[in-house]
Design a protein around this nucleic acid. Structure first.
Ligand SMILES: [Mg+2]
Length: 847
DNA sequence: GTCACAGTAAACACAA
DNA sequence: TTTGTGTTTACTGTGA
């Protein structure tokens, strides 16, 4: 095996690849080192060794010579590896003569700046930067990746960059991927760069690793710095690779490929492409190894153990959003007890059902549970144990056969019926084909509107739930959300429905058109809405009626809004546009939808905050006056949420709102809130007690695993608003639960205050409808100073203007990536500002 | 603020 | 020893 000297590496100005070769596998004798390897001269010929256990699992056509496709750092030299020359940091590291024969060191030393310690391998950072991401065939830009993080689209093509910052003299991590990353269990959104300390934990998608600096106690082996001066160009081009020769030959420009199978297969021929690489946990390098044989022995033992473990317990497939049929993405809005009961009724026998049968039954009846992550089984067991409705019928094998305690059920139903408004008896047994057929199913089981929570499950983090909280919004937002809640749908779903259902020979591009669509949607859903007293639902109607808030914003003025309100709305509009300037826009319809939604959300949030704080008067105007930054924050979060929903069509209304602790981390909010006092900007006037200032910041005390599970254990659908979740019990059997009023998008569930809000007063459909209309009208009418005197723009003019936005395209590079967090949507574009300013002006003219 | 309830997770014990 | 099963407990969020 060729191990070019450092001088060779250093001296060459030609593009080359240095492979960071991992050769832990004992089956490749003498390869228990990681060494710089230049493949620049003859990538095919200089990798004579063939190791079937190569890390790189994917075979590709041979590439003659790696050609750098990345920008090259020029004109800069690195006298020494900064990290290692810093006494403070790593004084214990011995700096070898850079010109020393690398072959001598090859046996037990690794020259590297740092190490990325993955679960199954170790990547030695031997270059000034390392790119991590998802390799996409045909996308040459991804060929520059140093580490392939697997095929899952939750990982962006260029998801992260680890690089040495010469200015700060440290390694830093730039999060490039849409879905962000977790750094030391703290979510870091895209666009953020932060310093890396020794042993920093990084999680991208489901891939975990640590950034390890070469300190004796942490580095598995003696890591030597490439102490000699090197040309920065070389540094960039030195691509460390974790592969062995056979495949490395064919992948001269690639590095680590994280795959599922194959890796240690004796015949790593066909790469298996699994969405999430449940990669094997190869033995981690142990410190203090001095000989290759020792290392080999330990590694083999560990590997065997790992293998056995793997065989015994196959990794459950983790589905990506795309893989899950749309109709099964939402968790059925019924409690576990309901699930179990329905299952037992549908499939139970005299002898009962075993636990595993119940599992399967639930999965069959509710395919959602086929796709969601584990954890629900535990809840089922818990429920079986706890709930007296279920009793052990007979013993079988390990456990019991479970059945229904009909007596108890009957009693329970009686109590239920008494406690609530006349309600159809629960018939929790869905027909087998209901959910399977993709219907909204559960019809017989749950009142039509409370069927499914459509909140996509992304993470177990507390999320806003569209059907778990009373609609707090008063203004027009209420009607928008009422419409959503009426169908138990998320905003995103509703939005998509609006898109689909709105008769739009022409896409409705104007605010008015959108309004009309919303109105239509609202009206459509209204008849089935439970939250309004105007249309009482058959059966129980325990849910709080859609509240009319205390917000007196033109509550009785269908034609016009008060001056304050107008002013406030104008402010909102301007802020919205400001915020939008930094974003990549989409087609006009989408843009309109986003803006409309963001507006509605914001209003709802403000109203909610006001109500929480017992604010009387005009909360919007009041808050703007007292704490405009807070308003901006809310607006920002709402914009994020709206953008996520509209753009992705993914029912993840709360993702933005659940931005993991933006205030608690160096991470900025999805869109940096301008002029904001960091972390301290709290709505003094509106927050008598500490409460989340906005959706972006609103965050409950971190529940265990809350954030960390976001990526670590992707649950692509947030636990549905446990319809039965609260205060239900016998009083409110989930199956009988009326639809919960919609939650304000801008209102994260973690806000405990919201639950204590007085329910909104009833409001007639038409009133709210008009209000909604008026709101947006007024907003669009609110002229900017420059445009006050401009003549109104015709609908066509507006459309033409908006058409300009249709040229906005999505991020081509990451197109197809799954947006998990609903954040990171900020995509600046140079010409956006002009266009948006134009939009702003035009909007002002439109009426 | 308190309470009840449901969801979730974990610890633990037990049996196959 | 591992895995599945069942119980219990703790904690959290939600709604009344
Ligand atoms: Mg029981």
């Amino acid at each position: 095996m060729e191990t070019p000297s450092a001088a060779d590496v250093q001296g060459s100005l030609s593009p080359r690849t240095a492979s960071n070769e991992r050769t832990r596998d004992p089956r490749s004798p003498g390869s228990l080192q990681i060494r710089q390897q230049s493949v620049s001269q003859s990538p095919r010929g200089t990798t004579p060794e063939t190791d079937p256990n190569a890390t790189v699992l994917k075979e590709e056509p041979l590439t003659p010579v790696y050609t750098a496709t990345r920008p090259v750092m020029t004109g800069q030299t690195v006298p020494k590896l900064p990290v290692l020359t810093n006494e403070n940091a790593l004084g214990s590291v011995t700096l070898d003569d850079p010109l020393a024969d690398s072959q001598d060191q090859a046996d037990d030393r690794v020259q590297a700046y740092a190490m990325l310690d993955f679960a199954e391998f170790t990547f030695y950072v031997q270059t000034m930067q390392v790119l991590l991401g998802r390799l996409v065939d045909g996308d040459t830009s991804t060929e520059a990746l140093d580490i392939h993080l697997g095929p899952t689209k939750a990982i962006s093509r260029k998801h992260a960059r680890i690089f040495y910052n010469f200015g700060t003299q440290r390694f830093e991590l730039s999060v490039l991927g849409r879905n962000g990353a977790f750094v030391d269990d703290v979510f870091v959104e895209t666009g953020v760069t932060l310093p890396l300390k020794n042993r920093t934990r990084i999680q991208i998608g489901e891939i975990h690793f640590r950034f390890v600096l070469p300190a004796e106690e942490t580095f598995p082996r003696r890591i030597e710095a490439l102490a000699k001066p090197i040309n920065a160009t070389d540094a960039v081009n030195l691509k460390a690779a974790l592969y062995n020769t056979p495949t490395s030959k064919s992948r001269s420009n690639s590095a680590v490929e994280i795959k599922d199978e194959v890796e240690r297969s004796p015949t790593p021929k066909v790469p298996l492409l699994t969405p999430i690489p449940p990669y094997r946990h190869a033995p981690q390098p142990q410190a203090q190894y001095t000989t290759a044989s020792q290392l080999a022995a330990l590694q083999e033992a560990a590997r065997k153990k790992e293998k056995a473990k793997k065989q015994a317990k196959p990794v459950k497939k983790v589905y990506t959003l795309e893989e899950i049929p749309v109709e099964f993405r939402a968790k059925p809005a019924c409690s576990y007890s309901t699930l179990i009961e329905s299952c037992l009724r549908a499939r139970g026998t005299e002898k009962g059902m075993s636990l595993s049968e119940i599992y399967r039954g639930i999965q069959d009846l509710y395919p959602y549970y086929k796709y969601c992550s584990d954890g629900w089984q535990s809840s089922v067991r818990h429920n079986l144990s706890l709930n007296k409705s279920f009793k052990k019928v007979s013993k079988e094998g390990k456990g019991w056969l479970w059945g229904l305690d009909e007596e108890y059920c009957a009693e329970r139903d009686k109590v239920k019926t008494r406690a609530s408004v006349p309600t159809p008896a629960p018939n929790p047994v869905p027909t087998q084909s209901q959910q399977s057929a993709g219907k909204t199913e559960l019809e017989p089981m749950i009142p039509p509107l409370s069927q499914q929570s459509v909140v996509p499950q992304t993470q177990p983090q507390p999320t806003l739930r569209a059907d778990s909280t009373p609609a707090p919004g008063t203004l027009s937002a209420a009607s928008l959300q009422s419409a959503m809640a009426a169908r138990g749908k998320s905003i995103a779903e509703l939005a998509s429905e609006i898109k689909r259902e709105t008769p739009k020979p022409q896409p409705s591009t104007s605010i008015q058109a959108q309004l009309a669509a919303n109105r239509a949607q609202y009206a459509k859903s209204q008849p089935s809405t439970r939250e309004t007293s105007s249309s009482p639902q058959p059966g129980s109607s325990v849910s709080p009626p859609a509240a009319s808030g205390t917000v007196p914003v033109a509550p009785t003025n269908p034609k016009g809004l008060s001056g304050d309100t107008m002013k406030a709305l104008g402010y909102l509009q301007q802020e919205l546009i400001k915020l939008t300037k930094d974003r990549k826009m989409n087609d006009k319809q989408t843009t309109t939808a986003i803006l409309t939604q963001a507006l509605a959300m914001t209003i709802a949030q403000v109203n909610q905050a006001a109500r929480n704080a017992g604010i009387q008067g005009n909360p919007l105007a009041s808050l703007i006056e007292k704490n405009p930054q807070h308003v901006t924050k809310i607006l920002t979060a709402a914009l994020n949420a709206a953008t996520a929903q509209v753009m992705k069509g993914k029912p993840q209304p709360h993702k933005a709102a659940q931005a993991p602790a933006p205030a608690a981390t160096p991470v900025a909010a999805p869109v940096p809130v301008p002029h904001q006092q960091p972390q301290t900007a709290r709505p003094v006037a509106l927050s008598p007690k500490p409460q989340p200032a906005s959706v972006a910041e609103a965050k409950p005390p971190m529940a265990p695993n809350a954030i960390s599970q976001g990526i670590r254990k992707p649950q692509y659908y947030s636990r549905p608003p446990n319809v039965s979740g609260s205060g239900a019990g016998l009083k409110k059997p989930s199956g009988l639960n009326p639809v919960k009023p919609p939650v304000s998008i801008a209102q994260p569930s973690p806000q405990p205050q919201q639950s204590r809000l007085p329910p909104q007063a009833d409001q007639s459909v038409s009133a709210r409808d008009a209000e909604f209309d008026n709101l947006l009208k007024s907003i669009s009418r609110e002229a900017t100073p420059d445009d006050r005197d401009t003549p109104p723009m015709s609908e066509k003019e507006l459309d033409d203007l908006l058409n300009q936005h249709s040229s906005f395209v999505r991020d081509e590079q990451d197109e197809g990536d799954i947006m998990i967090t609903g954040e990171g949507l900020k995509r600046p574009r140079d010409d956006e500002e002009d266009i948006l300013m134009g939009l702003e002006n035009k909007m002002a003219k439109v009426d």
